Amino acid sequence: MPSAEPSFKRIVNEISARIKSGELAPGEKLPSTSQLATQYNVSTGTVYRALSLLHDRDLILGQPGRGTYVADRSDK
């Protein structure tokens, strides 16, 4: 039975957990939007929504033309 949780929330929760556990380290580059869309079997719009929430929570940083990286939260 499919999860009732919206896809973008599942992505946010999974990436957040990986960051908090240290699996994704500060400064580590995340896969591209299209790679994440393929990985989670969702549209790129869903990935953008998830990344926007992660950015709002100061968990990731976008660098135009370079990619999206895990934020350094050591001073927070």
Rank of each mutant, 00 (worst) to 15 (best):
F8S: 09
P31T: 03
T33G: 10
E23P: 00
N41F: 00
L53K: 13
V12C: 10
Q63Y: 11
S7R: 06
E28K: 06
T33W: 08
D75A: 14
T68E: 12
E28L: 01
L30C: 05
L54K: 05
L24A: 03
N41T: 05
V70R: 03
S74F: 06
G22K: 13
L51W: 02
F8G: 01
A25K: 13
F8E: 12
K9M: 12
D56G: 12
T46V: 15
S16A: 12
V42Q: 11
Q63R: 15
G22V: 05
T44K: 13
Y69F: 15
G65R: 14
I15S: 03
T38M: 04
R57E: 12
P31R: 09
K76G: 09
I15F: 00
T38H: 08
K9G: 00
P26T: 03
R18D: 08
P26S: 08
G62D: 02
V70F: 08
K9Y: 03
S32T: 15
N13K: 11
V70Q: 04
R18I: 00
E28Q: 12
E23N: 03
T38Y: 06
E5L: 06
P2Y: 15
P64Q: 15
S52G: 05
T68P: 13
K76P: 01
G45L: 05
V12I: 11
K76F: 15
R49T: 04
D75S: 11
I15W: 00
H55P: 00
N13V: 03
S16K: 13
Y69T: 09
L30M: 05
P26A: 07
V12N: 03
N13H: 13
A71Q: 07
N41C: 04
S52L: 09
Y40W: 14
Q35T: 11
S32L: 15
S34K: 06
Q39M: 14
L59R: 08
V42Y: 09
M1I: 03
E14F: 02
L36Y: 02
S32C: 10
T68H: 14
K9C: 01
Q35D: 10
L24V: 07
K76Y: 15
E14H: 09
L30H: 04
G45E: 04
S43R: 04
A25Y: 01
G62S: 12
G22I: 08
L59D: 04
S32W: 12
E23F: 02
N41I: 03
D75C: 10
K76D: 09
E14K: 07
